[in-house]
Every structure is written in C-alpha cells, then in structure tokens.
C-alpha cells in the first residue's frame, strides 16, 4: 500500500512537470505568432483595442502574462476564453466535449476488449483451422485499414443501406454504437493478435500440461489456467490503446459529427483558436498520464512479479 501511494505521488510529480513543459511550449508558440485576437477586427478604434487588451491582460510584459495565465490555470483552473467561439470559455468547451469523448472512448475500449479477446481465444484454441485463418485475416485487415475508411464504409452500409443505425446525433445507445464500433475495431484487431500469441505461448507451459493431465475439462483449463497468463500482454497494451482511442476519436467525431473534445480540438486548430487548442492539449496530457498510471497499477496487481517503480 505504501508502495502504491509513493508511486502515485511520483507519477503525479512527473505529470506536473510534463504539463508545465507542454504549457511553456504552447505559450511560447502562441505568443510568437504576430497579432492578437483583436488586431484582425476591422475598424476597431485603437483606443478600444488598447482597452480590450488591458481587459484581457494582453498589454502586460510577456513574462507577466506567462506567470498570470499559469497562476490562473493552477489556482482557479481557468484556461481563459476562446478566441473564436462566441461567449465560450475554454473550460466550458471542455466541459461540453468531455462527456461525449469519454463515453465514446469507454464504449470503444470495452467493445475492443470483448471482441479482441474472444477472437484471440477462438483462433488460438482452434489453431490452424479455417476459423483461425479467417479471424487473423480480419485482424490484419483491421490493423492496416485506417479507421476513417472503416467508418465511412460502415456509415454507407449500416446507416444508409441497412438502416440499422441513425445517421447522426448523440445521446442514445444506438447513436453511440456505430462510432464506438469503428473506433474499437483496429484496437480489437490488435488485442486479438496479442491474445492469440499469448494463448499459444501459455498453452505450451508445464502448468497447463499438468492441468490437462489431472483430467480437467478443456474449457476449464483454458479459462482458468491459460487465459490469465495470456492476458498479460493485453493489459500492458491498454496504455497505448487508450492513446489510440483518444487519437482515433478525433477523426471519428469529425466523421460522425459528434460534439466531443476531438472535433472542438480540430476546429480550434483549423481556426487558430490557440487558447482552446492549448487547453485541449493540457487535458489530453492529463488523461493520458492518468490512464497510463492506472494501467501500470493494474498490471502490478495482476502480475505480482512486476514491481512499481
């Protein structure tokens, strides 16, 4: 337990350091771009522009701004106002987008785990049968075809031709299902391959032979003795998988027109809305750090040989 607390504390410190680095770089980039949010406004009298700048602290020396914004983020959790969205603070944008992205990501991960592990187990158990070959071909396909291509084909197939899912919108389960499936597909493919390799390796181990020798039924050996060992690589892949889901959700939110963080981020980037873009990068850093830490902790619980450090 003491280990765990120390570990979390250490990770937390690293996260703060990383965030600070990301903030500093973003700030430097933002400020090195000439002009300010008001300079493009045509016809704004210079006096008013000065007033606006004073109101938003843009007339302060650059170091002062750096410290002030940092203080705002640290003490008030305030990341400033959007440059491009009317009457939106960055926090509001994130608060709106986060639930959408989070539920999409969770659904996708759960789906990827269920499908990937099932497929991996089946193809390992029925090794060298047509089922195995077919599943592994599908897995390679899932890895090599970009998910935006899968998504657009899925829209065509399931939304327009078969009319199983609604075309757009957000909120109900049937509206989440299709984007989550498309998002989870490449990850499921990867997990299937990992599970299969892990299963095949564990099946040659001595303890499995013993289990068979003492007459346990096949399904019991596989679920009780083979699967736990085979799933270790899958658990350690969950960290990168989270990163992939976050990245992939940007693209899928664009295709399905979902109001998540990803589409806000892309819009911010395309319209040079620097405050929103910076806020998003910071939030994604936090998410990635937290998820990676959780995965590491889970791994050390499952596999006692691994020590947290």
């Amino acid at each position: 337990m003491r280990d765990l607390a120390g570990y979390i504390l250490k990770r937390g410190l690293w996260m703060v350091l990383t965030l600070w680095v990301v903030y500093s770089i973003s700030f430097a980039l933002m400020r090195s771009v000439p002009g300010n949010p008001f300079s493009s406004e045509r016809g704004m009298p210079p006096a008013i522009e000065l007033q606006m700048k004073a109101r938003y602290n843009l007339d302060a020396p650059i170091m002062q701004q750096y410290v002030d914004i940092l203080k705002g983020i640290v003490f008030r959790g305030d990341m400033g106002w959007s440059y491009k969205l009317e009457d939106y603070s960055v926090n509001q944008v994130i608060a709106e987008g986060f639930p959408v992205s989070a539920s999409l990501a969770i659904f996708a991960l759960v789906f990827a785990l269920i499908l990937g592990i099932t497929a991996g187990v089946i193809s390992a158990v029925y090794r060298r049968t047509p089922a195995d070959t077919a599943l592994m071909m599908a897995a390679v396909l899932g890895i090599a075809v970009p998910n935006f291509v899968i998504a657009s084909i899925a829209i065509l197939l399931f939304v327009f031709m078969l009319q199983l899912f609604p075309a757009a919108g957000w909120g109900t389960l049937s509206q989440i299902a299709l984007p989550a499936l498309c998002l989870g597909m490449p990850i499921a493919a990867y997990i299937a391959r990992l599970t299969r390799t892990g299963m095949l390796e564990t099946m040659t181990k001595d303890h499995v032979r013993t289990a068979f020798a003492k007459g346990l039924p096949r399904h019991k050996v596989i679920t009780r003795h083979v699967l736990p060992g085979a799933l270790l690589p899958v658990v350690s892949y969950l960290g990168p998988a989270v990163a992939r889901v976050l990245t992939g959700s940007v693209v899928l939110e664009k295709i399905f027109a979902l109001p998540g963080m990803g589409s806000h981020f892309i819009n911010a980037a395309l319209q040079r809305d620097y405050t929103v873009a910076m806020g998003m990068v910071l939030i994604y850093t936090v998410l990635l750090f937290v998820m990676n830490t959780l995965v590491d902790i889970t791994y050390s619980i499952i596999d006692p040989r691994v020590k947290l450090q």
Binding site: W14, M15, L17, T18, V21, V22, I25, S26, L29, M30, S32, V33, P34, A243, L246, T247, V250, F265, I266, A269, L270, R272, Y274, A277, M278, M280, V281, Y284, T285, L287, L288, F289, N292
Partner: peptide, 22 residues
C-alpha cells in the same frame, strides 16, 4: 516524460502554428 505527451495533439498544434501566414 516525452512518452506521456499526447503527440498527436501536439503535432496538430504545431502544424497550426506552422500554417500561420507569417
């Protein structure tokens, strides 16, 4: 440290900056 930076987003941020006319 760099491993835990979400690079996909940093790159998009960078490209935004690089796309600035100036």
């Amino acid at each position: 440290v760099l491993y835990s930076v979400p690079f996909f987003f940093v790159v998009i941020f960078l490209l935004t900056f690089l796309g600035e006319p100036d």
